[in-house]
């Protein structure tokens, strides 16, 4: 390839582009992520506390709170509001369980056009799939370590 017009190697070009490109506003992104992520967690905590105050046992209250947040994520996604939130919040709206819900509902809406089985059914876990695979794999490893530690004790 006649790249001598540029007088630069691929490495040099990469460096040049890195210098040239505008960086993401990290401080702003981190602060917004912290705020939005925190608010979502507070909502979850408020729901849990309200239920405990109504004499529901802690375990049930936590489960209900999780279900509520999953619903909230799905609900906002279906009105195309979660993607708008995500644009500003970034990791703040991806990491909490509402983000997990969003990552399943979004492809479900998108791929419905190809039918319920080959479209929706087979693409629903396109984004969440890897999270599940490695999440379950990690919990298996964790389980083994936990088992070994309790045996030694």
């Amino acid at each position: 390839m006649d790249t001598n017009k540029f007088n630069m190697t691929k490495e040099e070009y990469k460096e040049y582009v890195d210098k040239k490109s505008e960086n993401s506003p990290i401080l702003k992104n981190v602060l917004l992520a912290f705020l939005v992520g925190g608010i979502i967690c507070i909502i979850g905590q408020v729901v849990t506390n309200c239920l405990i105050a109504k004499n529901i046992d802690e375990k049930t209250a936590k489960t209900f709170s999780t279900v509520f947040l999953i619903f909230l994520g799905a609900f906002l996604t279906s009105f195309n509001l979660y993607s708008k939130l995500g644009k500003y919040a970034g990791a703040g709206s991806v990491v909490p369980i509402t983000g997990f819900s969003n990552s399943i509902v979004a492809p479900a809406i998108e791929y419905k056009a190809e039918g319920y089985i080959l479209g929706l059914g087979s693409n629903m876990f396109k984004i969440a799939g890897p999270v599940l695979v490695y999440g379950i794999f990690c919990s298996f490893i964790y389980g083994v370590i936990y088992y070994v530690i309790t045996m030694i004790r």
């Binding site: 490109s21 960086n23 993401s24 993607s83 939130l85 995500g86 991806v94 979004a106 809406i109």
Partner: peptide
């Protein structure tokens, strides 16, 4: 978007470039 990137309703951030 759906062919090259993420589903539309998925909440994510894009870099300035």
């Amino acid at each position: 978007e759906r062919q090259f990137r993420m589903p539309l309703e998925h909440g994510n951030q894009r870099p300035p470039s």
